[in-house]
Design a protein around this nucleic acid. Sequence first.
DNA 1: ACCACAACCTGGCCGC
DNA 2: TGCGGCCAGGTTGTGG
Length: 273
Amino acid sequence: MPELPEVETIRRELAPQVVGRRVEAVDLMWPPVVARPDPDLFRRILVGRQVQALRRRGKYLIWDLDAGWHLILHLRMTGQVYVHPASVPPDRHTRAVVRLDDGKAVHYRDVRKFGRFYLVQDEALVVGGLGPEPLDPAWTPEVLFQALQGRRAPIKAVLLDQRVVAGLGNIYADEALFLARLSPWRPAGSLTWAEVQRLHGAIRQVLAEALDARGTSMRSYVPPSGRRGTYQQRRRVYRRTGEPCPCCGTPIVRERLSGRSTHYCPACQPLPG
DNA sequence: ACCACAACCTGGCCGC
DNA sequence: TGCGGCCAGGTTGTGG
C-alpha cells in the first residue's frame, strides 16, 4: 500500500522513537515475515544492535544499525508500524515485535502478510536495483527523458517500474499523469521533451502535496502516530470513477493497465491517434 | 523488452 | 447471518 509519501511519513514519525535505542528482543509471530537471513540468525544478529539512523529509499524503510548492519523493511500492501509500551500484547495481525531498551516496542502489523524484513550489511542486495529518488535534485527532467527513450510500454507502467524512478505507486502515478495531462497509455518513449518536463514537474508536485498531507489514508494506511493522512481529500482522479473531472467535468474512467486499475480523464488526457 | 497472468494473503464491500 | 464475486496503495516469477 504505502508509496513514497507514506513511507517517508512513517520514517519521520518513527525516527524520534527508535534512533539511539538498542534492541533488547525480537518476537516473530509469523517467521516468514523475515526474508533474510533465516529467522534464528535474524534474531541473533538484531538483538543488542543500536539504531543509529532511519532512512528511506523508494518504498523501503532502512534502519541503520551499529556494526554495519541494516534492517530493511518493505510494507508492500498492508504493512503498518506502531510503537507501544512493552505491556501491550500483539494483536492478531501483528507479525513481529522489536523490543527496545526504553520499555517501548515496535509492532509490525500486516493483514495480507506481503511485507518483508531484510537484515543485511550490504544494503545494495536489497535496494541496489532501485532507480533515482524523485525528490533528489539529481533527478532532473533530462534524467527522466533519458530513462524513457526506446521504451514502448505505456508511460504508466514505466512509472511503476521502480528501476526507472523509486517510490511511485498506483495512486501517485495516476495523479501525476492527470496533472501532466498525459494519457497513461502513451508509449513512454513517445513523450516529447515538453511533455517529459511537464510530467517531471507533476510527479514532484504530487509527491510534495502528498508529503504535506502525510500520505493517503483510503484503506489500511495509518502512520505510527495514528494520525491518518489526508491526501485522499485532494486526489483528483484516483478511485474517482464516474465523478466529474475537476478540470472539465468529464466523468473519470477506470481501465485496467498492466493489471492495475488506472484512473484518468479521457478529455484532458487523450490518447493521440 | 514487453505483456498477460498468477502467485503471495486477507478482509471489506456489494448484491442477493 | 451467509455466500459469491470483485476489489485492494506491491513485487516477483513464468511463459509467450
